[in-house]
Each structure stands twice: as C-alpha cells, then as structure tokens.
C-alpha cells in the first residue's frame, strides 16, 4: 500500500501557541486511517491543514506525491479530496437532493446528471427516503449522513471525515459504521478524526495518536490502545504504570 497523502513535518502556530508541532504521517491508499487524541491535542488543526482551511506555519502536505500545501480548498476538491464538517453545515434553503447535487455538480455540469448522481449517492448513505425533504428538517443523524453524501458526491479519492460520529447515539453509531466501511470497500481512502473510541477500534486499519500537538504513536487500533504513551496522554502522567500495577496485583 502506497501513501496517498503524506504530511511532512507540519507545524502550526497561532501566536505563541503551537497547536501542531512537527507532525508527520502518511495515509495509505485504500485504507481507513484514524487520527485520535485527547481534547485540544491538535487533531482539528491538523485536519484543517490537510483539508486546506489553514495554511501551516511550516511543513508540506503531499497528495499522490504532489505538493498541495498552497492549493486552495476548492482546487483540492477538484483533485479528489473531500471533507465533512464536525459541526454539520447543510445548505438550509435547499432540499436534501439539491444539497447533495452541489457536490455532484463538481463532476456533472448538467442538472439531470447531477441530480441523478445525487440520488445514487443518497442510496449509498441511506438517505433515499429523505431526498425531497428540506435539509434543515433533518435529524442530527440525518445531517451527518448528508455531510457524508455531499462529500461523496464530489467523487473523491480521499475522504476526510471530521468527527462524523460525534453527537450520535450508540444505535445511530452502529448504523453508521457499516456505511463508512462500505465507502472504503468502494475504493475510497479515508482519514477519520474521531472521538468515539468504539468507532476507531471498529473502523480503522491504522491509527495515529496526537497529543499536545505531537504525533506520539502509530499502529493498529489494538497496538495503539496498549501503548503506554497513549494511555498517559488520555489519562494523565503515570497512568500507564498504575494500570500495570493494578493489573499485576489483580
């Protein structure tokens, strides 16, 4: 598996605050890669750099070997990089179908083709019954699916998912996981920023862990969960040692 996306020594500073510090990671083609970390670790910042919403202070982002650091967001979308938003952003004045069509228009200039493509995408994410509803009338779960559908409608090669499961209840998460897995099986590479651990463990082929702006671990979900540095990042200094002691004593 070659890397579709490479983050090379990216640093992002806001004034005196270093949100992302010299981070390097690779997203292999055809897999689901997770980016996790405790609150305020820099996940969202790194995600914004990768998707083009923030220009990094230092470092490069490469996609298919090309340097895309300076490309604007819409050009990245044309190249095949799509993203969703953690805070869902439906176009309130439009129906679900029209919302998805905005994405589909990137590859289909004609109305009929774009609307047909939107219908096909809606089926992939389970929104077919809601196609003619106003987007503003959807439930949170529906809106998350709409985020996914719109991004998919741009026919991406790389899909960046920003906490697409946050705010869903456990049964909605269970419904959503196979949808994401199916997208991967259709050949779309996925980078997912996620809080919901159940999802990360279930979905991701590989996981990168970021804490205090630094990437501290990388591996399969099981490997990462056992990594003492990761445990400490989440639970505090000394936590790994204490856990080991507890396990040893019990």
């Amino acid at each position: 598996m070659s890397a579709l996306l490479e983050v090379e020594r990216v640093t992002m500073r806001f004034g005196g605050l270093t949100a992302v510090d010299d981070a390097s990671m690779a997203v292999p083609e055809g897999a689901i890669t997770g980016l996790i970390g405790p609150n305020g670790a820099g996940k969202t910042t790194l995600f914004a750099v990768i998707s083009g919403f923030l220009a990094p202070t230092a470092g490069r982002v490469r996609y298919r070997g090309d340097d895309i650091t300076d490309l604007s967001v819409h050009v990245r979308a044309e190249r095949g990089i799509a993203r969703t938003f953690q805070v869902v952003q439906p176009f309130a004045g439009l129906s679900v179908r029209e919302n998805i069509a905005v994405g589909a228009y990137l590859r289909h200039a004609a109305r009929e083709e774009a609307l047909a493509a939107a219908g096909a995408v809606a089926e992939r994410v389970g929104l077919t019954r809601m196609l003619d509803q106003q987007a503003g009338a959807l439930t949170v779960a529906g809106r998350k699916r709409l985020e996914l559908a719109r991004a998919l409608a741009t026919e991406p090669t790389l899909l960046l998912l920003d906490e697409v499961l946050a705010g869903l209840n456990p049964s909605e998460i269970r419904d959503m996981i196979p949808v994401i897995r199916r997208i991967r099986d259709d050949g779309i590479t996925i980078l997912i920023v996620e809080h919901v651990m159940q999802a990360v463990m279930n979905l991701c082929d590989r996981v990168h862990v970021i804490a205090q702006g630094k990437l501290i671990a990388e591996g399969t979900p099981a490997e990462v969960a056992r990594n003492p540095r990761v445990v400490e990042a989440y639970l505090g200094h000394g936590a790994a040692e204490r856990m080991l002691r507890v396990q040893g004593g019990g």
């Binding site: 719109r150 991004a151 741009t154």
Partner: peptide, 15 residues
C-alpha cells in the same frame, strides 16, 4: 445558493 448558505461548506465541495 450554496455560497449564500455556507461558504466553507461550498468551498469544500469544490465551489
């Protein structure tokens, strides 16, 4: 209309 409703989301969809 996408630009009217949400510029960031429009941008992310290649607009």
């Amino acid at each position: 209309v996408a630009v009217r409703e949400n510029e960031d989301a429009a941008r992310a969809l290649g607009v």
